[in-house]
Amino acid sequence: MVMIGTDSHKKTHTVVALDRVGRKLGELTVRANTDGHVNLLRWAAGFGEVTFALEDCRHLTRRLEGDLLRAGQRVMRVPTRLMADARRGARAPGKSDPIDAEAVALAALRHADLPVAELDGPAREIKLLSDYRRDLVMQRTRACCQLRWHLHELDPDLEVRSRSLRNDNTTRRVADALEGVDGIVARLARDLLARIVELNTLVKALEKELAALVAAQAPSLLAIPGVGVLSAAVLIGETAGVHRFRDAAAYARFTGTAPVPVWSGSSAGKVRLNRGGNRQSNYALHMIAVTQARGIGPGREYLERQSRRGKDRTAAFRLLRRRLSDTVFQALRADQRHNVTDLPTAA
């Protein structure tokens, strides 16, 4: 088997082919378009059975990955951290496109259990909609903060409660207060209010669309106490196929809930908080834990049990997040089996 590593840019892809022991067989640079991808496939055909290793920066490799998969090729995704480690340990110093492509291929040879890419499906649709909603919410938050300062300048006695600008009643009340007020500050306030109303409509429409998609794809995940549509959408989109993970422990490392060992000699068993992993998934698990701690589901009882064992609240929450990671993993697996069995069979 030949491993072909790629270093991708907006205009070009540079690829390097290595044999199973890491010896360089060839390199090529092609344009980052369909014609270039066809040339790449013709070149790769000369090596027989190949596997493509792409650095996991999907904003640059999405189209290449799709063309390779549609051509029947096997594609692996190499995390940037592993590529950087392989480049630092290489014999050739410096940094160039061929050096980076070779480092990607070396990392793929050293780590046989890396995620295997597949064609886009409902999980990516959910991720794109979830990410778009998050961006719109950030825009709305910024517009709300700006509007509040303008309103305070115009009328310090006008009370607008926190987070109330997402409600239609509040936006209408503010619009009535601004009606007939002259000046540049009032004009800017009206423009910001109109933008907030528009963003409210877009966010609500996206949440409705996400609710339908998530309910169809992950009923078992939604059945977990404390898991709402938005947290489920984040977990589905960031996981990108639970079959990529061999067990719950591997998934916990992905979500950043698996503790990091920090012991040596007689201090065995010590661990620290894992600040790595996918932070969006980690945040979603944290919000589920917060919800359960309020009495929805078994979280509160679990925290109290850990407290009786001498754990402080922070340590107990870490344990609860890990427990929830395992629960989410099992639910995603159940949903995957459900979705596979629901696929239509050929006549």
Rank of each mutant, 00 (worst) to 15 (best):
L193K: 00
A186I: 01
D247G: 08
Y251H: 10
A218H: 10
S162F: 14
E65D: 04
R163S: 15
A334P: 13
D335G: 12
R20S: 12
D176G: 14
D97S: 12
A218E: 10
N39G: 15
Y251N: 06
S267I: 08
S264H: 15
D342Y: 13
I99R: 13
E55T: 02
I4A: 03
E304I: 10
T239P: 02
L178S: 04
A112Q: 14
T341F: 13
E304W: 11
S264Q: 10
L106H: 06
I4Q: 02
D157Q: 15
D157V: 09
A143H: 06
L192W: 03
V174E: 00
A258V: 02
T291N: 14
H150F: 07
G226F: 12
M76H: 11
P344H: 04
V50P: 01
A250T: 07
A347Q: 09
D155Y: 03
A44I: 05
L213M: 14
H37V: 01
H37I: 08
A252R: 01
R318M: 01
C144W: 00
R173M: 11
D342N: 15
T345R: 13
V214T: 09
L25N: 01
L18K: 03
R140M: 07
T14W: 13
C144I: 07
P298G: 09
V271T: 15
L193Y: 00
R42D: 15
S8H: 09
R275W: 09
E27N: 09
T291I: 11
L25A: 12
H338E: 15
F254R: 00
R253E: 03
V174F: 01
W43E: 01
V38T: 12
I99D: 00
K204G: 06
M3P: 04
L109A: 06
V203D: 09
L158F: 07
P259A: 09
R58F: 03
A103I: 11
T170C: 05
G5W: 03
F52I: 04
P115Q: 00
T345I: 08
A215W: 08
A101Y: 00
L40V: 04
T255I: 02
A105L: 05
G276R: 14
I288P: 04
P156H: 03
S281E: 09
R20F: 07
A289S: 08
S130Q: 11
A175R: 13
H9E: 06
N274G: 03
R148D: 04
R318C: 03
M138V: 12
P156E: 10
